[in-house]
């Protein structure tokens, strides 16, 4: 019986330690803003934009420049509005040429956990654009969250 008692004690001790080691903590995401990730393309190839390019968002009626010099960039990440349902993005090229993209989206307040709080995700519905240099815009992943997926592809005229 002594051996049995020792075995039982050992099991109890091990289980107690296992229970004590139980960790209910969460690993919260480091990011707190979900970006609309846009890739630049020419045909089927990714494009490092060859000309001077500035990209701005229209925020409450005013231009807010996100990238003053995006020449050589092949993608950009843009924040999206939490309360508006359409964002306006302006691409300004050299020679006073510009394109405007209108991104309609639904805003989704997402509850992560008690410890990590809430974040804002978005679901893109429709994209309209002008056609100065932009040939077309494709929605690749309409759900904008912390994943590094490409959400939109802009195809520039060749």
């Amino acid at each position: 019986m002594r051996i049995t008692g020792n075995i039982l004690f050992g099991i109890c001790a091990a289980l107690t330690l296992m229970l004590a080691a139980c960790d209910n903590g969460y690993d919260c995401s480091i990011n707190n803003v979900a970006y609309n990730r846009i890739g630049f393309y020419s045909g089927s190839e990714k494009l490092e934009f060859p000309e001077p390019l500035s990209i701005s968002l229209v925020v409450n009626g005013n231009d807010s420049i996100i990238a003053a010099d995006a020449q050589g960039e092949e993608e950009i990440a843009l924040p999206m509005s939490y309360t508006h349902e359409c964002d306006t993005v302006v691409f300004r090229y050299s020679g006073n040429i510009a394109d405007t993209i209108f991104v309609s989206h639904r805003n989704i307040v997402y509850y992560q956990s008690m410890e990590c709080g809430t974040v804002m995700y978005h679901r893109i519905g429709e994209v309209r654009h002008t056609r100065a240099l932009i040939d077309s815009v494709a929605i690749m992943h309409n759900f904008v969250n912390f994943d590094a997926n490409e959400n939109l592809r802009i195809y520039f005229a060749q």
């Binding site: 924040p79 309360t83 307040v109 709080g117 809430t118 974040v119």
Partner: peptide
Amino acid sequence: QAPPITDPVWGGEASL
């Protein structure tokens, strides 16, 4: 139920 979160670019708040 969550307290509102503030939009860092446009301003304004959204709650859950």
